[in-house]
Nucleic acid binder design. Structure first.
Length: 602
RNA sequence: GCGCCCGUAGCUCAGUUGGAUAGAGCGUCGGCCUUCUAAGCCGAAUGUCGCAGGUUCGAUUCCUGCCGGGCGCGCCA
């Protein structure tokens, strides 16, 4: 991914290279880098790779090249330094290339693509609580959807709800057998969370009974057997679509779905298609039957599976239990087929934590052996877990922060520490909206800024500090730039016209001269490449790191006493307004790819 | 035991086609609010890049073997 600026620089360098160098402008552009120290120049071209074709030492090539670049208008200075050629850009010309596009709202054109991609993420279980651990997946999947769309793909955002299985049976066991009819009345709000408490209670009770039964306590052994018999009965009735249990299942499931809808709305996440496990379990078993008959799947100890020798440490992949019921894996096969057939997708992405890497390797190998060509374009995006300072999240130990508590504690803290001072000056609605935007930004950036293969320790207190490399820092930087633009508008100060001729724009932007202005122009130029790299690698953290750099450049410019916009005049002022417009747009565009917004003021 | 991931400043982490003196945030110390929001800006200090080999003109980056930590390993999801 190269930018218009890099291409212009590379074209000049390529033209100055000896004909036998064998590098065209695109190849040169790929090699361009930032010098380690801004004092050396704006861009650097390393000459190591030319030493073979030119049969000269890299420093000699660099010296020759620097000499040949004397008359290029885009460069105000060219220096050979060891194997590198460092160029200083004419800031007016560079800014005229970089700023207009992004100031107009888009950081260059996305690649033209025809592929249709599905990103499956979130996948919460109904009848269970939604907590901070689920937020990493949600933030990651949503950011990938946005990044891939920005990178030219047609993307279908898909959710896959776990609405069948043992956890439902445990929850309904508690609901039906343990709760009294009066207790069975759900609260007015957060009914899904309430169901989660029931599930949790049931799960804890079963664990306790299991522990007690190990010590051969006859009462415990009997109680455990009874509880297991009952949950099994519920599960079997559910699978047999028993009318009464199905009605209860449907009613309670709706409570969880209502909670999820509220969570997604608060997070600004929209799904194009929601799959349910309940719509693929039967189809999965039918597939197992079909491919068992074909000899692709085999029987083993009464169960059915497939032998994938490619996975040496665990070749057998079970697809049907001995009792004939389905597994997660069974449903994944039917779900994959549904995705292929219903949406004609070319590429299928699964955002699921890293513990399931082996599982998805098996799923994709199995799909390939079943004859699905799309299996080659199925990708698992693994990520590491979220923990709390007190250790891994465990419902049983009460070591968990539920979504609602997370939201309430963050907004309350933001109001108390930062926003209450605006009470009266701003409307209550704006203060509330601002708290929402900042809390969401803090969570999303926190979940996305770390590489997917790093564990995250979610320390609510630390995340609420909102200092340093955080979402609110980026939002603050954006709000500062926006504030300048607002004041310019109020004062009737206009930016340099982005549709002026390149010559006029170059001349006007030549008024930019300070290091802070130069640094900001160069930083803005990095937006599209950073977004493209994040999309290509399915790694939003790449864009996070870039945006943090951009925000720092923006803050240095805004903070510099000699770069004030309102105190300047004439061409300098018009050039600076365009620069701020572009920086503001770049920050907003980048944040939007992460699913983040910035408040107008904060 | 086998497989995957991690190991870089006191702490948390960037550093992906191998390239200049290894960077950032937090914390510590010291500056900057009569000039566009101090949730900010500037400066200082801090490294056997887990260890040992190998490939290379050049390795934090690639390969091999160790050490330390996390996770996974047929009837859960």
């Amino acid at each position: 991914m190269t930018t218009a600026l890099h291409h212009a620089v590379a074209a000049a360098i390529a033209a100055a290279l000896p004909p036998d160098a064998g590098l065209d402008a695109d190849a040169v552009a790929e090699g361009l880098a930032r010098p380690p120290d801004a004092a050396k120049g704006d861009l650097a071209f390393p000459c190591f790779k030319l030493s073979k074709t030119l049969r000269k030492a890299p420093p000699q090539i660099a010296a020759d090249l620097a000499g040949a670049l004397g008359g290029v208008p885009l460069f105000t200075d060219v220096q050979a330094a060891g194997a590198y050629v460092n160029v200083r850009l004419d800031l007016g010309r560079a800014a005229a290339i970089v700023l207009p596009e992004i100031a107009a709202g888009s950081p260059g054109a996305a690649p033209a693509r025809t592929e249709r991609v599905m990103v499956e993420y979130s996948q919460p279980n109904t009848h269970k609580a939604f907590h901070v651990g689920h937020m990493r997946n949600l933030c990651l999947g949503d950011a990938l959807v946005r990044l891939l769309r920005a990178d030219g793909y047609e993307v279908i955002a898909a959710n896959y709800l776990g609405d069948v299985g043992a956890h439902i049976a445990k929850c309904l066991w508690w609901y039906l057998d343990v709760l009294t009819p009066e207790q069975r009345q759900p609260p007015a709000t957060a009914r899904g969370e309430w169901l989660g408490e029931l599930y949790s209670a049931a799960s804890n009770r079963l664990d306790d009974l299991e522990d007690a039964a190990k010590s051969k306590d006859p009462d415990a052994v009997a109680a455990l057997a009874a509880a297991r018999a009952r949950t099994t009965e519920i599960l079997q009735k559910l699978e047999a679509r028993d009318p009464e249990l199905t009605r209860i299942w449907f009613e309670t499931r709706a409570w969880s779905l209502a909670d999820f809808d509220e969570i997604y709305a608060w997070c600004g996440v929209v799904f194009d298609r929601v799959f349910y496990e309940s719509e693929v379990d039967e189809a999965g078993l039918a597939l197992v039957e079909q491919y068992l008959a074909k000899g692709v799947f085999v029987q083993s100890e009464g169960a059915v599976g497939i032998v994938n020798d490619e996975v040496k440490h665990m070749p057998f992949f079970m697809l049907r239990k001995r009792d004939g019921t389905s597994l997660y894996a069974t449903k994944d096969l039917a779900l994959a087929r549904l995705k292929f057939e219903e949406h004609r997708i070319d590429r299928s992405i699964y955002v699921v934590d890293a513990r399931q890497s082996d599982h998805f390797r098996h799923v994709f190998l199995t799909l390939a052996k079943m004859g699905f060509a799309q299996a080659a374009r199925c990708e698992h995006v693994p990520y590491e877990m979220v923990e709390l300072p007190s250790g891994p999240m465990a419902t049983r130990r009460g070591n968990v922060i539920l979504f609602r508590a997370l939201r309430e504690r963050m907004t309350a803290h933001l109001l108390e520490k930062y926003l209450e001072k605006y009470r009266g000056e701003w409307s209550d609605a704006e203060i509330e909206r601002c708290a929402h935007t900042l809390a969401l930004g803090a969570i999303k950036y926190g979940m996305l800024s770390r590489d997917v293969n790093q564990k995250i320790v979610f320390d609510l207190e630390a995340w609420l500090e909102l200092e340093g490399n955080t979402g609110p820092y980026l939002q603050y930087s954006t709000a500062r730039a926006g504030s300048i633009l607002r004041k310019c508008e109020e004062a009737g100060i206009a930016a340099a016209a982005v549709d002026a001729t390149p010559e006029a724009l170059t001349a006007l932007l030549g008024a930019l001269e300070h290091p802070e202005e130069r640094e900001l122009v160069l930083a803005i130029d990095g937006l599209r490449p950073a977004a493209a790299q994040a999309a290509a690698g399915l790694r939003p953290s790449v864009l996070c790191a870039y945006l943090h750099e951009l925000a720092k450049s923006n803050n240095r410019f805004v903070n510099a006493k000699h770069c004030k916009v309102l105190q300047s005049e004439g061409d300098v002022q018009r050039a600076r307004v365009l620069l701020v417009t572009a920086a503001h747009a770049a920050l907003r565009w980048g944040l939007a790819r992460l699913g983040m917004d910035a408040p107008v003021r904060m």
